Simulated assay, not measured.
Amino acid sequence: MLEDGEVPLARLLPGRPGRQEVPPRIVLYRRPLEFRAMDREDLADLVHDVIIEQVANLLGVDPDELA
C-alpha cells in the first residue's frame, strides 16, 4: 500500500529522542495519492489506509489491530 509501483505514497520519519528531541512524523505525498484515487471518497479511504499503515509501522503492530 505504501507504494504505487515505484512511487511512494507516504514516508515515516521515526523521530529522534534525546536532547534535541524530534517527534515522529508521517509524510503523505499528495500528488501520488491524488493520482491513484478515483474520486474524493476513494482519496479519503486511501489516505486513511496509508495513515493506519504508517502508524502501525511506527508502533510495531499489525495494521488490522488499529483499523
Rank of each mutant, 00 (worst) to 15 (best):
R11Y: 07
D45R: 15
R36A: 15
V55D: 08
I52P: 00
E21L: 14
P63R: 03
P24H: 04
Q54W: 01
L33K: 08
P63I: 08
G5S: 11
I51F: 03
D49V: 00
P63C: 09
R19E: 14
D64F: 08
A44L: 05
G5Y: 02
Q20F: 04
G18H: 01
E6T: 09
Y29E: 15
P23E: 08
A56H: 05
L58P: 01
E34S: 09
D64L: 04
D64C: 02
I26S: 01
L59P: 14
V55S: 12
Y29M: 09
A56T: 07
N57D: 15
E65M: 14
D4S: 13
E3Q: 13
M38Y: 00
G15T: 09
P32M: 05
I26Y: 08
R40F: 08
D49P: 00
D45G: 11
A56S: 10
L12Q: 05
D49G: 09
D62A: 12
Q54F: 08
R19T: 11
L59I: 06
P17G: 15
A37V: 02
G60F: 04
L58K: 11
P63N: 11
L2T: 09
G15E: 10
I52M: 09
P63G: 05
V50M: 03
M1D: 14
V50W: 00
I52V: 14
A37W: 06
L9C: 10
H48Y: 07
G15M: 05
